[in-house]
Design a protein around this nucleic acid. Structure first.
Lengths: 163, 163
DNA sequence: TTTGATCGTTCATAGTATGAAGCATATTAG
DNA sequence: CTAATATGCTTCATACTATGAACGATCAAA
């Protein structure tokens, strides 16, 4: 894919690119691992499975969610949502009521306990990311964010041409 | 945690920090999702479970690995490794031979097929990351990498003070 | 009122992951 | 040299993550 016309004697630009590629790969791997550790840590701290935590965090603005909506937001199969919700109901964090307009639909809402837990969780998440930002000087912060911005869209672009 | 002395009237710096925090959180989430999609895509493409792929990629330099070493590299329990290896053996990608020096140890090595698969895989990974880099101008690349570098160490720092 | 679409559930299946218990083999202390 | 201890791997029980097909209930439209 590289070295299109210069296969035997890679010039210094190629060498640099190769080095940077390896570095990028390693960095992304380490960042991924860090994020994963964070997630399992929160899961243990709250004593709630990761998928259920992720679900809990969806109740930001909306008072009620539907299984279908949750399925789309979490990007999992509907059947998975049934399981997640039943776990949260068992822990008395959410409750499900029948939609008065459509008997097929069940509206999932937070219980008071669930509301407290959910707020706690999102506060913790925000704190974590804020502390991350505070590791940088104010001028750097903008740069880091725009860097990630570009990285994300580049990843998207690469993903699409990947197929 | 914020607003230590100015709780009622957050100044513009606080507003900015709040905005940046949310942005950072969203960006990281999207990047994570992108990486996850990449992993499942490769898993389907190779028709090999993700954990086994991850294991396959460990055979970079080393001719042989041990279950314990794999367990440490992948950061999973020993018993998990047994499962992963048995999957790879079934697919004829690795084979296990007895260590001549220590009968407790089994040396795990790639079969010829496994070698080919492993090379294919790491070439694909490299390609992917190289394409990612090529999305940037040469001058930008250095910056992106150093940005991630700082981000990674900041994450590490935050993780450690998290406990 | 039948037809077709939508919503959620159940079930079978598979992958991810841990930790305790166990067996065989090594190493070390007495 | 043997008894105790440590190490390496496997097995088993358990739990979480996730999908897709099949299903019953309900709604909407022809």
């Amino acid at each position: 894919m590289l070295h299109t016309m210069n296969d035997q004697r890679p010039d210094s630009a190629d060498v640099l690119l190769g080095y940077q590629t390896r570095r990028l790969q390693d960095l992304i791997e380490e960042i991924l691992r860090c994020c994963k550790e964070r997630t399992t840590h929160l899961s243990k701290k709250f004593d709630i499975p990761e998928a259920e935590l992720r679900c809990l965090m969806l109740f930001g603005e909306q008072r009620y969610l539907t299984a279908k909506g949750i399925s789309q937001s979490l990007d999992v199969a509907k059947s998975r949502v049934t399981k997640i919700i039943s776990g949260l109901i068992h822990k008395n964090l959410v409750e499900s009521i029948d939609d008065p307009k459509d008997a097929r639909i069940k509206l999932i809402g937070l219980t008071p306990v669930g509301q407290r837990r959910s707020k706690e969780l999102s506060a913790l998440m925000t704190d974590l990311h804020q502390e991350l930002l505070l590791e940088f000087e104010p001028e750097q912060r903008k740069m880091v964010i725009s860097c990630l911005e570009v990285l994300r869209s580049s990843m998207e672009a690469v993903k699409n041409q990947m197929v």
